[in-house]
Design a protein around this nucleic acid. Sequence first.
DNA 1: TCAAGTACTTGGCCATACATAGTACTTTTC
DNA 2: GAAAAGTACTATGTATGGCCAAGTACTTGA
Lengths: 112, 112
Amino acid sequence: MNVENTQVQMRKGILEYCVLHIISRGEVYASDMLDELTAAKMIVVEGTLYPLLTRLKNAGLLEYKWVESKSGPPRKYYTLTDKGSKVLEKLTKTWDELVHSTQMITSKSRTA
Amino acid sequence: MNVENTQVQMRKGILEYCVLHIISRGEVYASDMLDELTAAKMIVVEGTLYPLLTRLKNAGLLEYKWVESKSGPPRKYYTLTDKGSKVLEKLTKTWDELVHSTQMITSKSRTA
DNA sequence: TCAAGTACTTGGCCATACATAGTACTTTTC
DNA sequence: GAAAAGTACTATGTATGGCCAAGTACTTGA
């Protein structure tokens, strides 16, 4: 058990929330998302993002269409389904509550 | 795949951070922690908390001593070790960064 | 003595993040 | 036009932590 491990664990679920949010703002493909996530210092590697997108698609939260590219192979452009929007709403609420709860605990100072 | 699942995943690691913080504020035993976590709406069950405490103790982040109770079996009162304090510091930083990163992404509004 | 309450333990299940290797197509370079 | 480099996506296996559920052990009260 080490700190790096906990840091990895902390991302779980949150990444899914962030990805849904990014897609909710307009059509994007995987590299777009990687760029934005990296810019926000939420470092993610391909091997994490692609399986996540596949999961979300299989769960009916995402759709995609192939779009030809001028430089390289065609790309999958993702959009949110209605179901995806509803899930995003719930996750937003969950995340807000989680942040609030954590704040409640960590803002208390030593009593002893 | 369902929302509940993601909600569970979101807790990962964060719980550990919260528990370390609670212990950092003074000696407590498991039921104390459960009460505080519940009060903050960070619902946790015994089967999650006890193994977590054992993990943290085995990792050298916590110590405990048995204390007799007036109503029931003796209790394990936990305190943080030096190592535990250092880990808590790092996790605080990680959590703050994670919240910040998530905020960067989710505060953007639709561009399309 | 036996039921109820409190505190802690244990084993198994599941989902996600990550590492790593691989496929497929396009453009560039010689 | 064949090899090399680049881009986009796929597949497999590992590790970890939260949760469920059942169980142990001690104390108190009827």
